[in-house]
Design a protein around this nucleic acid. Sequence first.
DNA 1: ATGAAAGCGCTAACAA
DNA 2: TTGTTAGCGCTTTCAT
Lengths: 336, 336
Amino acid sequence: MNNERITIRDVAASAGVSHQTVSRVINKSERVNEETRIKVESAIEKLGYQPNAIARFMAKGRTKTLACFSPNLTDYTYASIIEGAEFEARQAGYFLMSASAPDTGTFSMLVEQLVASRRTEGLLVINPFLDNRHTQLPQFSPTVYVGARSSVNTMDSVFLDDEEAGCLAIRHLLELGHRSIAMITGPFVEDCCRDRQSGYVACLEDADINFDPKKVVEGDWTATSGYKAVQHLLANKIQFSAIFAQNDRMAVGAIRALREAGKSVPEDVSVIGFDDMPLASYYDPALTTIRQDPFSMGREAARLLIRAIENPEKQRRHAKMPVELILRKSTAVFHT
Amino acid sequence: MNNERITIRDVAASAGVSHQTVSRVINKSERVNEETRIKVESAIEKLGYQPNAIARFMAKGRTKTLACFSPNLTDYTYASIIEGAEFEARQAGYFLMSASAPDTGTFSMLVEQLVASRRTEGLLVINPFLDNRHTQLPQFSPTVYVGARSSVNTMDSVFLDDEEAGCLAIRHLLELGHRSIAMITGPFVEDCCRDRQSGYVACLEDADINFDPKKVVEGDWTATSGYKAVQHLLANKIQFSAIFAQNDRMAVGAIRALREAGKSVPEDVSVIGFDDMPLASYYDPALTTIRQDPFSMGREAARLLIRAIENPEKQRRHAKMPVELILRKSTAVFHT
DNA sequence: ATGAAAGCGCTAACAA
DNA sequence: TTGTTAGCGCTTTCAT
């Protein structure tokens, strides 16, 4: 039976009560007689009534919907953040509309359509500083940044402990005896890259090694950029016995370039990545890397967003998420 | 200025017309005087009015929203399908709510909450036969299967030409001179695995090679299952000079197991994968594989779904998507 | 071309 | 405890 058109009033008529009583039953209000509740519930059952959430939103003025904009939906890290956010949102009775905003134009269109027009109650922005999309944010919607620290107190943010992550990687390499460590970064416009670099610099200085800007080359997160970065280092005869790549894809690209240049990993050059992407342990050599937990980041972000919606008076928070060194086979003790 | 509360009536008052006229302007109705249109538009501008989509749904009885349920959001293939579907939906003025349904329980809960209660107008189901979730489908919502053929005429479906894909892989291996070809499949409950196997069997028979069930072992799409499959083949002394893995992850696992057993790829054993996952070309050896185009599948699925919603009287369709052989380095000419 | 009235399916506020 | 009346912000008649 098609129940698309059965309303609260049909149920009311069938049960011989007012539609308001039906509403009370649906909303589990206390103030309803056990007898009538039974009557109503069996009418609901009989007619196969399904509450219309849209009408409820309309009446309550709340949509119980969150929006999440990501540069894309396919990167493992982004996808995991979204999955985590969706999970947490659902636990709290919210829904998540996620959309891919490859560029700022799409981003502002989505802000207009989802936040302004469809009245999502809050917004999660993954990678907010990418092509300055954070300037297109809605004015009056609770927002949380994922993957970057927000500098204002009106917004929560969830990000990695990137400086510590950089340290972790470098400390590991130092312990293996490396003194000449190159780094392949992501785009410098992204906070996290600069923070990882701060960790790199700080850790080297602790070991009395001067920071050499020639040893850092900027990539764009793709394997190909890691590959080219190594070619660049090699072509310019820059010395290094180890590489810290700011993500696993670039690490993989770097390893390929190293091999093509006749250097083996980890015997000649150690390589450490970042992310612990799905097949990192199946790569050859198995990738030593810094693991992050994007699913938890997504959960935390959704939790903060819901808190911002429901308790706007409370202080905004900035959650720094932990990272972890995963030892595998792409790094080894330095020897000349 | 906070425009959350500005309605059509505020605009009407400000422009000195009825709210109905404002509605006409918003909806670009013909029947409105140029002068009044200007007045209304400037009032909209001045007040920063944003139409409330929820109220519009309420009045029109349409939500312009599609739902998409996937076993997870993180698998590259699923994520790409979703991205494609979202892209296409947006082009057509719809939105997509995607949700991860790891199990049937979650699946039916989502059907209830999104389709029944939130009145999404149509449903995309990725991998519908997984743990029999297709039995939990809503009765009166247009639905399209993605990744499996639907056997009924009430539903569209979009799937790969899996039999051809199997053939493509085997034909390639045969051309290289292999006669003894093992296969690692996905879970047999999934249509696509059986279809790929049909292709495998048919192609072998064309070459007068008898199908040997011992040479096929069932995996579960994970790299680990590919790894174990090879260990199983080896332990049971089953002969093979090539392996067709039904996805790239299992291919990668298989290669690792082969290496650990002292066999090199492709010198001793050729391995062909399936999917052409992101880093397939950066794997060592670069993976020969069967490429699919999940983004296009997602687009096609959304297109069919919207067609089913807007033209229910038309025949349902079953779109078989093409696959492509990508030659790289993990397969080579057979020699004893 | 424009406006008035009714209604989409629900909840909130008040009355009984 | 239950019912009545008003909306929520829009669109759809149907008048004017």
